[in-house]
Design a protein around this nucleic acid. Structure first.
Length: 527
RNA sequence: GGGCCGGUAGCUCAACGGUAGAGCAAAUGACUCUUAAUCAUUAGGUUGAGGGUUCGAAUCCCUCCCGGCUCACCA
């Protein structure tokens, strides 16, 4: 059974699927895996007849900790402040930085994937008092929290430490404050200049109430608090958090022992590596989510994440054959889902995989499966031949007019193929007509092939072919008259014009070039 | 040091207790119209190593070896 369906079959009753993101980091391709995975789980639950909600929380009470996201003059003022209180970048109409982030990142990368969770803002949970109960419980049971940190993670907190981060009343920072002495309604705190390396506290000392948005729980407690508050039953996390004694273990223990709520079912998911190496945001080429999204349309991107089981590493190398193969595999599975016979073995539950790769919530699977999809590599080739009408060619290959859906797929693929040719496509996928000089590869042609090129130049000079199909007919006729196998005739032409052993349909290629150049080149290559 | 994933044909991977398989690459052949195409045929393997469980192990258990990621400060 497909992994998401298996999960859905293992639970009963109404479900709440939750995912969240701190809006301080950039979204790279790897972080899309979590969202796609939660979306698939949500759809699997609905498909199994279970009521399900899909929530997505924005952790906008987190401290701004990335200088790169701020203008230099804002760094001093806002590093360490809650993201919901950092102004949006210049030119943005968003109310604050966190809102800007969601508008920019979420709507651009998640929404095209057909993912539409119910949003909530963690800052609002605090501001409207819904978190107050958990805040009080955490402070009342601070000793228990400390002992969990020690037992689960071997992290020793000072006996004065409290599980709360207050917003400094003087400078507004949250990342720099240290709170002590909970008296049941207020805590004492200091805004320390040296609390963290990335922000400088103002030195203010005071005493304040931690309720109603004036403070936030530390990460592990906040996570656990959200589970209870929102009734979360399923929430996966990346393997960085799921490690033994790590964040997830800590939050699970806090949920059980401090808030007395059973934590949600976990689905640990592996990362996405680029070419066998981890993605490096700092070195970052081809790493940002939008970069990959340019080359992979939404359905193929979902497919990439949904094909392996969650706990398997995905090694995605955008160079080489990876991208065309991904399209081919998708198309093969679409064909199989439509009931057509396909070559090779199919993954288990390929039809479920295909369904979840389509954009939700309830796609027309039979229509999508039956749709005609031009092979990606073939399309990329056609795109490089001047004067070819893509739509006409593809329609001719299908043998019937394209439906609206098919036309949309073609447009989407055309855009992706262009982006691929501009970025990741290997040299052998790129066609360059060698206008300046006869390619070196011509030297490898034999006498028969040279003779063929000469004969073709003579025939072309007298018959003056203009259109692709007339050229194509001539190419075959002269080959036949010369007693040369057509495959070798084509190889000679590709060598003469492209310096390659193969290429696009030669007739159309020659028809797209200057007639005088074609004749010159045929003669020159014939020797 | 802890955790997770992986090691199967030249390459990418499938099979997850029941005769080791596919795609690509390779070799050979076919082709007068999709040429990164299609079709046919061939070759290619002590499933990282060693033990154990089983009628039967790539698959389950144990011990190693190798590779990758990740955690141990913060979120």
């Amino acid at each position: 059974m497909y992994w998401a369906d298996e999960l859905a079959a293992a639970v009963a009753g109404p479900q709440v699927v939750n995912d969240s993101k701190s809006p301080s980091g950039t979204v790279h391709v790897g972080s899309l895996r979590g969202v796609v995975l939660h979306d698939a789980i949500h759809r699997a639950l609905l498909g199994a007849g279970l009521p399900s909600r899909f929530l997505y929380g924005v952790d906008d009470m987190d401290a701004m900790d990335s200088q790169a996201l701020l203008t230099p003059d804002a760094v001093d003022r806002y590093m360490g402040a809650p993201l919901c209180r950092v102004p949006a970048p210049e030119g943005s109409s968003a109310a604050n930085y966190a809102r800007h982030f969601v508008g920019e990142i979420f709507f651009r990368t998640f929404e095209p994937l057909g993912i539409k969770p119910e949003f909530y803002w963690v800052s609002e949970l605090y501001a409207d008092g819904r978190m107050d109960g958990c805040v009080k419980l955490a402070l009342d049971r601070a000793d228990r929290v400390r002992s969990i940190y020690l037992r689960v993670s071997h992290v020793e907190r000072s006996s004065s430490w409290l599980p709360i981060q207050v917003v400094c009343e003087n400078c507004g920072r949250i990342g720099t404050t240290y709170a002590t002495d909970w008296d049941g309604s207020t805590v004492a705190y200091t805004c320390k200049p040296d609390m963290v390396s990335w922000a400088k506290g103002c030195g203010h000392e005071g005493r304040m109430s931690p309720f109603g948005g004036r403070a936030k729980l530390p990460w592990n407690l906040e996570w656990a608090a959200k589970w209870g508050l929102l009734g979360v039953t399923i929430e996966g996390c990346g393997k960085d958090l799921a490690t033994a004694g790590g964040s997830r273990d800590r939050s699970d223990a806090i949920s059980r022992e401090v808030f007395e709520v059973e934590p949600p079912r976990n689905v640990t998911y592996e990362f996405l590596n680029i070419g066998g190496r981890k993605m490096s945001t700092s070195k970052g080429q081809g790493v940002a989510a939008h970069t990959i999204a340019e080359v992979l349309p939404p359905e193929q991107l979902r497919f990439l994440f949904l094909r392996p089981r969650p706990n398997q590493v995905i090694d995605f190398d955008p160079e080489g054959d990876t991208i065309p193969r991904l399209f081919d595999e998708f198309d093969r599975i679409a064909a199989a889902t439509a009931g057509r016979e396909v070559k090779g073995e199919l993954p288990a539950d390929y039809d479920r995989l295909f369904t979840y790769s389509l954009l939700g919530p309830s796609p027309d699977v039979p229509a999508a499966a039956a749709a005609f999809r031009p092979a990606f590599a073939h399309l990329a080739l056609l795109l490089q031949i001047p004067g070819v009408s893509i739509a006409e060619r593809i329609e001719a290959e299908k043998g019937a007019p394209l439906t609206d859906l098919e036309a949309a797929i073609l447009t989407e693929r055309t855009v992706a193929a262009r982006a691929w040719l501009d970025s990741y496509a290997p040299e052998r996928a790129r066609l360059v007509v060698r206008h300046d000089a006869v390619p070196l590869e011509v030297a490898a042609l034999d006498e028969a092939q040279r003779g063929y090129l000469a004969a073709l130049s003579v025939a072309a000079a007298t018959e003056n072919p203009r259109s692709g199909d007339v050229w194509q007919g001539l190419i075959f006729r002269v080959a036949s008259e010369s007693g040369l196998a057509s495959g070798r005739a084509f190889a000679a032409l590709y060598a003469a014009f492209l310096g390659r052993a193969n290429g696009p349909r030669a007739g159309w290629l020659l028809a797209s070039l200057e007639p005088a150049f074609v004749l010159d080149r045929l003669r020159a290559a014939a020797g």
